[in-house]
Design a protein around this nucleic acid. Structure first.
Lengths: 221, 221, 221, 221
DNA sequence: CATGAATGAGAGTTCATTCAT
DNA sequence: GATGAATGAACTCTCATTCAT
């Protein structure tokens, strides 16, 4: 926006800086996943990143900024993942979404990250926090837009019920992330390690519902 | 000695003590909801409870114990709520669960509590933490058992598909709590304030699925 | 001193009060011996004394007062013990003092108390502390006066060297309490459990010295 | 790499660190001597050391560690002092030990430290406390070994009585530290400011005993 | 630009003391 | 007089952040 050239010139310096930022974020991610945001100290992050503690402050304004950076990165990755798993995957909507479930599950612990992310948001008190939250919300929407677009196509094709596709996408994504990822984790009261089983549960519920004689054709919603 | 009835003796002293405990828990709950567990200080809780800081330690061993107490209370209430809304509510399974969704939604912000609860669990590092987590997990199961029993009856009656009713109950509950309660809150990227609309979304999805021509009768799961 | 009647009238009330005081002091002593002054809480003392915490404050102004009371009691007992073991014990000076050493040793752990007493004095900050310390010092002197009187008699009889008997009594008492009692305790680097052996070490050193050809007769001190 | 000499490398950094440690220890020592361990706050130590409170924790793990560090330092110094004053001092055993007494006395208030050290040990409750105590006991032994070696030589030379030299060294050291140092201090019930007088008292008692006709030659101990 | 020692506000927790019952 | 729940000042320790090197 500030510059006119499409990609100005990622000078060596700039690239190195970006590289460093990513390294630090990765170290932070690992720490946060292990012990939670609040229980992680900057010393630990610095040690893991193999940088001095002060150096981190050359790249991030504060510990909170580190978490926010991570959240944004997580969301952006989420969009790419959804696009890969849904748009670029061949097959029916059902097959595409099944693939999406499995993809998210495959990321496993990595996506326990998700819970952490959601959890720790409470902890943040930065100034300008509200704005940041809004923009994070927007990123969530970006993720949901991907399945939502698919659902819209299916509605248009008369294959699924004409409900708000964005809402449905959100609900679906939550089923995957909370129930799906949850059941893979030890502390969750239910443990299902077979990805196929979880995917089947979610997909058949979402597409077909529980009822044996469902009331299709009579929707007025 | 003091009493004849089987129920031991809720002596005045005991009752007052319990009353105090509840007051403190309520103050803690309010604070935690407002600022999160980690950002709440004991001074704040004490001030809100209108007790001295030391007094709190006459009732709870530590700040963590306060959170754990809250979580357990929340879960136990959850069981009662589920029983009221499902078992003791007249009508079909669909009607019972619709009522359940609306009941949880009605508790609104109160149940944002739920998110907090889940979130902050990461923060805890108490000794004997694992045991506590196990017992909290058990309480979750107690909640899910209520809808699970209903689903089992429906399966037996041939009205819904023969899937693991406990898993389905868990997934349903999660849909309600995460999607349902979430959409009521400001920071959630989607905001739906109409409880009927949310309940309808969840219930029709869960019972009937999204597909227009569903594949009933062919389950091999 | 304040009253003219030699012993006014130890009314039942008064006696009970004294009895209570002693019970509390004993509880405090036991606790202090076990954990040290600073590590003992009033709750523990109250529990051990089988009184309410508040009750203790009807008998003693503060926790410090409890320690000071104990010290004074200890000292006063010390005088009686010295008199019993030295004055009222038949035999030569050597035999009397040997008996004194053994008596102190026999009180064993009870007199580890002594160390505690000396130790914790640092901790005290009461107002009027200096005065109290002075009066405790006086009590020490009362103890030392007992062996000092014996030594004076021996000097007069020409049986021991004409040195300041009070100083010598002090040095002797310290040898008994620090070295004698010390060697009986686990944490002390030297452990001698045989009382006769310790007594012999102290007495022969004190009376005869280490040298084989000593320089008697040439004192100019 | 950095150094050629066998002594590792007292790099400037290392030296500064050690210097800081010593400064902090000295501040702590001064505070402890003034008010006792328990009555000294970390704020006071920090203020006296002219460091921030947090800085202290960069050098010592805890307040207890500070005390233990001080104790160990005290003991180690004690060994050096004993060696200087006894081994490296010319003259007879009597002269050497007289010199030792005077040396300890000269350190005066500095060695009131000793009492504090011994006193406050009760207060400690660190984990691994027993081990630390053991090692402190060992350090005491190291001190006593120095005069003990001297006494052994005298025994071998037939100049002093054949008693356990280690026990005698301990008793002697205690006489010096408790009686000798004590009598120099205000709160002690006896005050003798003349070092020569104290040294004479201790030395003649220890070497020659109090008796005028002592029983040399007849030991059966 | 990298560093890590220094910092001190702020946290949870303890406990001697008070006082209403 | 006896009680023990209530109290809050005071404590040790942590850790995000700064800044001289």
């Amino acid at each position: 926006m500030e510059e006119v050239e499409s990609t100005p010139k990622p000078s060596r310096k700039e690239l190195e800086k970006l590289q460093r930022k990513r390294e630090i974020l990765n170290a932070a991610k690992a720490c946060f996943l292990e012990k939670g945001y609040q229980n992680t100290t900057l010393d630990e992050i610095a040690q893991r990143a193999e940088f001095g503690k002060g150096t981190i402050y050359n790249y991030f304004e504060s510990k909170e900024e580190l978490l926010l950076g991570l959240i944004e990165q997580f969301m952006k990755d989420g969009v790419v993942i959804a696009e890969e798993a849904i748009l670029h995957f061949p097959g029916t909507a059902r097959e595409k979404l099944t693939n999406y479930v499995k993809t998210v599950l495959k990321m496993g612990t990595e996506h326990e990250h998700f819970h952490m992310v959601i959890s720790e948001i409470h902890s943040l008190r930065t100034q300008g926090f509200e704005d940041r939250m809004k923009s994070i919300g927007k990123l969530f929407e970006d993720i949901w837009k991907v399945p939502a677009r698919l659902l819209q196509e299916e509605i248009d094709a008369g294959r699924i019920k004409p409900k708000n596709p964005f809402y449905m996408a959100c609900m679906f994504d939550m089923m995957v992330r909370v129930f799906g990822v949850g059941t893979q984790q030890d502390k969750f009261p239910i443990k299902i390690s077979d990805h196929d089983e979880i995917a089947d549960l979610i997909i058949t519920t979402f597409f077909d519902g529980m009822s044996i004689h469902s009331y299709e054709g009579q929707y007025n919603g």
